[in-house]
Computed example of a mutant assay.
Amino acid sequence: MLYKCIVIDDEPDSVEIINDYIQQIPELVVLQSYIDPVKAMADMAQGDPVDFVFMDIDMPRISGLELSRAIRSKTNKLIFTTAHTKYAFEAFEVEADAYLLKPFTFAKFALAINKLLNDNPRVRTEDNSKEFYVKTTEERNRFVRIKFDEVIAIESVKNYIKIYTTTEEIMTYLTLKEIKERFDETDDFIQIHRSFIISKNYIEKVEGSLVKLPKNMLIPIGTFYKDAFYDYLLKNTIKTGRNN
């Protein structure tokens, strides 16, 4: 299933960047791009509804906030792309679904889209709510689908992260904080170190301050995270009422 997108920005360079980002996500297709917001408003008023609108706020003749009020009913998801934080409250008032601050990386763009696709009733299913995509470091346009239940651990390594699954190891240019936002949607994962998020389902053994995972992975429990981890461990430990 393809999701139709419209891009509205008076800066041609910004339009080019967003179009490039959209083209790198298999589910999205650019239906039309505009550098004239008034023209965009006229066309959308007469056209069919679309799935995504990416729109700047500071534009001549009509601002993105004013335009959004006119075309909000014509799009399922509205994403503001702006260099200014001062419009965040106004964006909330017009029911924007995302607020991307320029200049934003492809990683941030992809994470926002991933979240919106999974929040979208039109695409929420038993299967896709349990998977996500990442862009690998190996090739410019190579995306890998990963299932949550196959992820063993995620490690932060310098400027990228490594995702350990039951079948492979995948490198992607994201931060641990960025991907944690996606993994926080499920209760199956827990951060136990500043560089590691692990799957609770793959914990084999806990020995002192080390957690043993499949593939002989030994992950240290960081001081900052140990209280939350041991709290989880105690809640899930079967206790005996007998005296030793």
Rank of each mutant, 00 (worst) to 15 (best):
I79W: 08
T82I: 04
T82F: 00
T82V: 13
H84I: 04
H84N: 09
K86S: 14
K86R: 15
A88H: 14
F89I: 15
E90L: 14
E90T: 14
A91K: 01
A91M: 09
A91V: 08
A91Y: 02
A91G: 09
F92L: 13
F92A: 06
F92D: 01
V94R: 03
E95I: 01
A96C: 08
A96K: 03
A98N: 11
L101I: 12
K102G: 00
F104P: 02
F106P: 03
F106Y: 12
A107K: 02
A107G: 10
A107S: 15
K108I: 01
K108L: 04
F109Y: 05
F109K: 03
A110V: 01
L111H: 01
L111F: 05
A112R: 08
A112V: 07
I113H: 04
K115N: 10
L116W: 02
L117N: 03
L117E: 05
N118S: 12
D119R: 13
D119Q: 13
D119P: 06
P121F: 04
R122N: 14
E126S: 14
E126W: 09
D127W: 10
K130T: 13
F132W: 06
Y133C: 11
Y133V: 09
Y133Q: 14
V134G: 07
T136S: 08
E138I: 13
E139Y: 11
E139P: 04
R140C: 07
R140L: 10
N141E: 10
F143L: 15
V144W: 00
V144H: 05
R145W: 01
I146K: 09
I146D: 08
I146L: 13
K147T: 07
F148E: 10
F148C: 08
E150S: 15
V151G: 00
V151Y: 05
I152E: 02
A153W: 03
A153V: 11
I154V: 12
I154C: 06
E155G: 05
E155V: 07
S156P: 00
V157T: 02
K158S: 07
K158F: 09
N159W: 04
Y160R: 04
K162Y: 07
I163T: 02
T167N: 13
E168D: 13
I170K: 05
T172L: 04
T172A: 13
T172W: 02
L174D: 02
L176C: 01
L176H: 01
K177Y: 04
E178W: 04
E178A: 10
I179N: 00
R182K: 10
R182G: 09
R182N: 14
F183Q: 00
F183R: 04
D184T: 06
D184G: 01
E185I: 05
T186A: 01
T186C: 06
T186R: 08
I190V: 11
I192K: 00
R194N: 03
R194D: 05
R194A: 03
S195W: 00
F196W: 13
I197H: 06
I198L: 09
Y202K: 11
I203R: 07
E204T: 08
E204V: 07
K205P: 13
K205M: 12
